[in-house]
Amino acid sequence: MSERKPLLEVDNVTLRFGGVVALDKVDFTLYEGEILGLIGPNGAGKTTCFNAMTGVYMPTDGAIRFRGQQISGKKRHKITKMGIARTFQNIRLFPEMTALENVQVGADAHNRGSVPSAMLRLPRFWQEERRGIKRAEELLEFVGIKGRTHELARNLPYGDQRRLEIARALATDPTLLCLDEPAAGFNPAEKVALLELIRKIRDSGVTVLLIEHDMRLVMGVTDRIVVLEFGKKIAEGTPAEVRDNPKVVAAYLGVPDAA
């Protein structure tokens, strides 16, 4: 951990909607190869922060840099191509596509062939299509839903839909994968399996940002944790440090902040 390379820098980001301050000078850095947890009570601004990072919202103030490059203001699909992929808190698959096709859409992000090559079935089309299918099949196996390859996304069981979202995001070949409450609605056994999957993703070389409010899940898997409350960062550190931080305890137990 001595020579950590910063991957994503959230630099004093403020985000206002009208009069409401959703994020207030949030500032943290994500290093290559780590699993960072972003936690906080409901409405703390976790998903907003996430949306700012993936280009859904423009920060009112401050900057977000990915590998030193500004990303705020860039087009969303360009940000994806730069290497940031995400899943959604409320699953947003393409329901009438099969699992394979969903993942293929992700894999298409790096395909360069467009209308002419597809219309004329040029060699590049076949090459990219074959590669996309192969990659998609590998990823479906990687997340553990190989048996569902040809089923429609909307017919998959809930847990498999979450896994499919992860596969689709991985298909865009990200360096940073952002998971928005991936364990929501999971039973303990499923959560354990998910932890396993997240570690596996990290070990394959992908940095992971995990939004979660299940504390135990976050403690079990993350290297470091950032805690948000009311749009402000109130703590940052290793799981153990954060767990013992009185501000975090207060925020989670609902005790009014004495300070």
Binding site: K75, K81, F94, M97, V105, D108, A109, M119, G132
Partner: peptide
């Protein structure tokens, strides 16, 4: 040929969830 290609998939994804499509790298 277009419908059964990356282009066709992009169109379906736009129809079904344009925001999600964009975030998955579909221009």
């Amino acid at each position: 040929n277009l419908a059964r290609s990356r282009v066709g998939r992009a169109w379906v994804s736009i129809r079904e969830d344009e925001d999600a499509a964009e975030l998955m790298g579909v221009p």
